[in-house]
């Protein structure tokens, strides 16, 4: 728990028009740790996740107050290049969303966008990324076939490989396994343990057992606020707040 803070969120408020979706959220996200965000639907956890790489900017009428410091620098500052920010802080979504192109081109997409043309270098990145996403052994011999032919679990790992290809520092995951079968889910969970050595991971999940299994720190959101944040093993065995206990044990939600 004594890793340095990768992201520090201070007094964060977010409004969709008149509706306040996040209230005074403060959270320290540590480097090389997996932070899980849990809470009932509509509690603000996905909204919060999206504030960490300014995905909410794309939604009309959103207003953000407060600070999100990435390595000490406010990502909502006036001189921030959002494209660069999203390269450093990447996101994996609920449903795998591979591009309708080959496995290779999916992974090479990001580096190419960022200007890389060297074929050999691209080959290296594609292989390294697919290996890091624990997918190489399954697709190494069909790199030039359509990514859409992969299974759901493979597609999700491909999306992770695509993200890793641009060498992010933080990986945000919004319910990355909710559309996957149990075996694919476990593969992703295993993968997360490997990835955390290199990256900082923040994951939104509705699956309590998943949060308990994979994360180091868990934050419980309710009505746009953080009710409790703590070490995962303590939060799931001995939550401090009655509302946390009620939620994780399924007494409301």
């Amino acid at each position: 728990m004594d890793n340095k803070n990768k992201i520090t969120v201070k007094d964060l408020n977010l409004y969709y028009g008149d509706h306040q979706a996040l209230s005074n959220v403060a959270l320290e996200i540590q480097e090389h740790q997996i932070t899980a965000l849990i809470g009932p639907s509509g509690c603000g956890k996905s909204t919060f996740l999206r504030t960490l790489n300014r995905m909410n900017d794309l939604i009309e009428g959103v207003r953000v107050e407060g600070q999100v410091l990435l390595d000490g620098k406010d990502i909502y500052g006036p001189d921030v290049d959002v494209v660069q920010l999203r390269k450093r802080v990447g996101m994996v979504f609920q449903r795998p969303n591979p591009f309708p192109m080959s496995v290779y081109d999916n992974v090479a997409y990001g580096p190419r966008i960022h200007g890389l043309k060297n074929k050999r270098r691209l080959d290296e990145i594609v292989e390294a990324s697919l290996r890091a996403a624990a997918l190489w052994d399954e697709v190494g011999d069909r790199l030039f076939r359509s990514a859409l032919g992969l299974s759901g679990g493979q597609q999700q790992r491909l999306c992770i490989a695509r993200l890793l290809a641009v060498e992010p520092e933080v990986v945000l995951m919004d319910e990355p396994t909710s559309a996957l079968d149990p075996i694919s889910t476990l593969r992703i969970e295993e993968l997360l343990q490997e990835l955390k050595n290199k990256y900082t991971i923040v994951i939104v999940t509705h699956n309590m057992q998943q949060a308990a299994r994979v994360s180091d720190v868990t934050a419980f959101f309710l009505n746009g606020e953080i009710v409790e944040v703590g070490k995962t093993d303590q939060l799931f065995t001995k939550p401090r707040d009655k509302r946390t206990e009620d939620y994780i044990t399924g007494r409301f939600g």
Binding site: M208, Q209, A212, F236, T237, P239, E245, I248
Partner: peptide, 9 residues
């Protein structure tokens, strides 16, 4: 039931 917290205790 996969109990946690107080349920598990």
């Amino acid at each position: 039931q996969q109990p946690i917290a107080r349920d598990l205790r």
